[in-house]
Simulated assay, not measured.
Amino acid sequence: MSIPATEAVTSGMLTPLATSASTNDDQQMFMELMVAQLRYQDPLNPADSGEFLAQTAQFNALEQMTKVAEQTATLVASQLAFGAAGMVGRDVSYLNEDGTTSTGKVTGVTFSTDGPILDVDGKQVPLAWVASIHEPGSTPSTDTPTDAQA
């Protein structure tokens, strides 16, 4: 026996999820499998409602964790951007590609998909290369304790 209303309800359930910005392929596959399980279950031996509720709860938890992960990534990117912007006007020491250390004044920041890029005296320096930050005009501290000081 076929119930036409089931077809309309299940296809309508997938549409909002498929158009949602936070839905990825794994979530879509999970929903399709769950709907298929409901559609093709044996009417004389239906699925356990507790198992169905557990699967629904797992899907909701996965969706919430995905949202938290996206919000955390946005927060980290914002913190990096504010931190890089706060370096404008300060002197920094950074590692060059050849492994040597250079010092210069940050005159600007560019934001790219790879993260903030500092403009240090005309040279593009990724934020990850910065070794130290110091007040303009001061020299970076390179003092290391000696055996007599330790």
Rank of each mutant, 00 (worst) to 15 (best):
S11P: 04
S11K: 13
G12Y: 05
L17I: 04
L17S: 02
A18E: 10
S20T: 08
S22D: 13
T23R: 02
T23W: 01
N24A: 06
D25Q: 12
D25I: 10
M29Q: 11
M29P: 02
M31S: 08
L33R: 14
Q37V: 01
L38E: 00
Y40L: 10
D42F: 07
L44V: 09
P46H: 10
D48P: 03
S49F: 00
E51W: 03
A54E: 05
Q58N: 03
N60R: 15
M65L: 15
M65I: 11
T66P: 05
K67A: 11
V68L: 14
V68K: 14
Q71S: 06
T74Y: 08
L75R: 15
L75A: 15
Q79D: 10
L80F: 08
A81Y: 10
F82N: 12
F82S: 14
G83H: 03
A84I: 01
A85Q: 09
V88H: 07
R90N: 05
Y94D: 01
L95G: 04
N96A: 03
D98G: 04
G99L: 01
T101Q: 08
T103P: 06
T103L: 07
G104F: 01
K105E: 00
K105P: 00
K105R: 11
T107V: 08
G108R: 02
G108Q: 07
G115D: 00
P116I: 07
P116K: 13
D119M: 05
D119H: 06
G122K: 07
G122H: 06
Q124M: 03
P126H: 05
W129S: 00
W129E: 00
V130L: 05
A131W: 00
A131G: 03
S132E: 11
S132P: 12
P136I: 03
P140F: 10
